[in-house]
């Protein structure tokens, strides 16, 4: 696969949310606004790229029977690093995303890419795969966030275009499921063309 293909497949063919349907927990929980979705996507991308690089480096020497624990320790380390960095330098962002930052450890996308891609490919390709999937995840979360913010709060990236509240269900859990479902339909219909 070409280098460019490694990056672009995360957007369409292997879109983590709409096609692989991985990482649903942060997708549903943190996309209450466009900004939250974007931040969550970027945080996941950070962990994804670094863990992909390290895992592709160490996978040849890791014994088969302990490879999952080793991968998880690596991923957990990067998540904790991210958590400390966010607490120190962007405390507001950390506060909004809160619990969902430590939960990146159990995000299926990260371990899934480690298992399915990074452990079998070169360091460079693994990094590109991390970037591609990361961008796909970030963009998807942002799009869901934009739709939910427009419908639920009547604003885009915090810029309000109606007075008062929107359709509040969309900033709550039911709206997350509805928007995800209908966007998935739309995505797959368009992707089939």
């Amino acid at each position: 696969m070409s280098k460019l293909g490694l990056i672009t497949k995360g957007l369409l063919k292997e879109n983590p949310t709409f096609v692989l349907v991985l990482g649903m927990c942060p997708t549903l929980a943190t996309t209450t606004s466009a900004m939250n979705g974007l931040e969550m996507g970027l945080a996941t991308m950070f962990v994804l790229i670094l863990s992909n690089i390290v895992i592709s480096l160490i996978s040849p020497v890791v014994p088969d029977k302990v490879h999952i624990p080793v991968y998880i320790v690596v991923i957990a380390t990067f998540v904790t690093v991210l958590q400390l960095l966010m607490q120190a330098f962007v405390p507001q962002v950390y506060e909004t995303l809160g619990l969902f930052i430590p939960l990146i450890v159990v995000n299926c996308i990260v371990l899934g890419r480690a298992e399915a891609f990074a452990s079998k490919n070169s360091v460079g390709d693994s990094a590109l795969d991390g970037i591609g999937i990361g961008i796909g995840f970030t963009l998807t979360l942002m799009v869901i966030g934009i739709v939910r913010e427009i419908l639920g709060s009547g604003s885009v990236f915090g810029w309000k275009f109606i007075a008062g509240d929107g359709i509040l269900a969309f900033v709550m859990a039911p709206g997350a499921f509805l928007v995800l479902g209908y966007l998935m339909v739309l995505f797959n219909k368009l992707a089939k063309r």
């Binding site: 359709i167 509040l168 269900a169 969309f170 709550m172 039911p174």
Partner: peptide, 8 residues
């Protein structure tokens, strides 16, 4: 129910 939680 949708309206109840959306426009309380």
């Amino acid at each position: 129910v949708f309206l109840l939680i959306s426009f309380p």
